[in-house]
Amino acid sequence: MARILVVDDDADIRDMLSFKLAKAGYEVHTEEDGETGLAAARELQPDLILLDWMMPRLTGPEVCRQLRDEEATARVPVILLTAKAQEADVQRGFATGADDYIAKPFSPRELMSRVQALLARSG
């Protein structure tokens, strides 16, 4: 029963992903901004994190950077979601330690496949 943390300030996206992931059998937690998301990541130790880029308080890349700096969360798979999809942004996203990068608008089914793949790889 893999545990997934979804951090996004957009309630529609949060809830939709929550429903889909729960239907697929995952245990889902959601947070609406970077700061509470980071705290939840430390506390819950999820198996995968879906992270939005533009959020109030702490942005996605900053959260990712902090996660990578801490021993406990350094290896959690992270997928970044964002409306910014220029080459430089993709590079920055990966540079902060994300494992995958999805541009918005996105295909939820495609996202699910990536989630499954990442979880399978990280065992």
Binding site: P105, F106, S107, P108
Partner: peptide, 12 residues
């Protein structure tokens, strides 16, 4: 309609 603008693919 709000969700539509954020999605691609089959769900859309």
């Amino acid at each position: 309609a709000g969700l539509l603008t954020k999605l691609r693919g089959e769900d859309r």
